[in-house]
Simulated scan of single mutants.
Amino acid sequence: MQWGVDVVRRSPEAPGSARLELVDGVSLLHPEDAVLDAMLDGWEKQQRGRRLESETIDDRRRIVRRFVDFSGEYPWNWTAAHMDEWSFSLTAELGRARSTIRAYQGAIRQFCELITSPHYRWAEECETRFGTHPVQICHEWNTAAHLEDYEGEAERRPLTREECQALFDYADDRVEEAIRLGRKGALAAYRDATVFKTIYGWGLRCREVSRLDLTDFYRNPKAPELGKYGMMHVRYGKATKGSGPRRRMVASVMPWAVESLEDYLVNLRPRFKHHPNHKAVWLTERGGRLQPREIEARFAAYRDALGLDKELVPHCLRHSHVTHQIEDGVDPKFVQEQVGHRFASTTAIYTGVSTDFMNTMMRNALDQAFTTEELETV
């Protein structure tokens, strides 16, 4: 039957395949560079089809380019020895963190999976053009495995309650000092003091607190005394496997932190120069959104002034939130949901309970054991 239109047939080639990225039978001026570019373009399309974030895709492309420069070879000439040499350089010469090295190796592994898969026909294309073909160079025996839930530096730890209080007091003192001396920066100092209290009060990451907007607070019918700040909507939680940010609702559990945040929003934020429609909670003196690096810089300045450990960073306040909640007897499952951990083991790693808490738990365990023995004797 004649329908008056041509039927469009789907290409049998998978997105990212050699046949879709290279025109068959065309002579290339610089074939090696052209094929490498086509491989990366094909890999990008394949990843976009999996709905990965553009930032993740761009980072992976840069890693492949970096490995090409290091090895001095194109992908169809890579060997496992090249990966061994690069891993050694990243570890011994550049001192990269274990998680960073694992991320680099993972990117190369996934790129090799695409160019060696028969579905994408890159091996066939390379064999035709260069007389050789790519192979997988990342194996279990020459790459770092993800064996731990937490791969941060071992020196990172929660701040003690005394250290938290000292930090908050010092931050408040900087505001009073700026006001007393008539210096600029009192607003910024007050803002940063509130930022640190908010990170601790709700167990947030730097990026999570930086991306808070005015519309991210809600009433909690179970906590009417907290007003409109009973719940916090965290919309930029840590992503997993290249996906978008994970959202979660965080219940407000520290009334003093709610009071501090409300005071900032009602009395201080309106004094910042900003566009009337700006949604950010934390504004800079120029009217922009406060960035994580600025939070980290202010924290480092206060940490050093107090003589605290150099390894402490704003993220340690999140660790402190978890630890102190557990010490106060809050259900670990609730804490896990609050901070957005998928697995209880991650929350456990974040927890660094104090000696007093451990002694209390030990005493409770011993008392229970002795009571059980007495009952059995009777």
Rank of each mutant, 00 (worst) to 15 (best):
A188H: 11
A144E: 03
A186Y: 15
L167Y: 11
Y104W: 00
A103D: 03
F168Q: 06
F168M: 12
R183G: 10
R121M: 11
F111P: 04
A144Q: 05
A107W: 00
E163R: 04
R102D: 01
I137P: 04
W122L: 11
E113G: 02
W141Y: 13
E140I: 05
L147Y: 07
K184M: 09
E163A: 02
G106T: 00
E153F: 02
A178H: 14
H146R: 05
G131V: 08
A166Y: 07
A145V: 05
E163L: 02
A103P: 00
Q110V: 00
G152L: 03
Y170M: 12
A154I: 09
H146Y: 02
A145D: 12
H119V: 10
S99N: 07
K184Y: 08
W122R: 10
I115G: 07
A123Y: 03
E124A: 14
Q136C: 09
T100S: 09
G131A: 10
V175F: 13
R156Q: 09
I101Y: 01
R157N: 03
W122I: 08
R183Y: 08
I137D: 05
A186K: 14
R102W: 00
Y120Q: 06
E125F: 15
A145E: 13
H146K: 06
V175A: 07
A103T: 01
L159K: 08
E148Y: 08
S99P: 01
G182S: 14
Q110R: 06
P118C: 09
A186P: 05
L181A: 15
T160H: 07
R129F: 14
P118L: 08
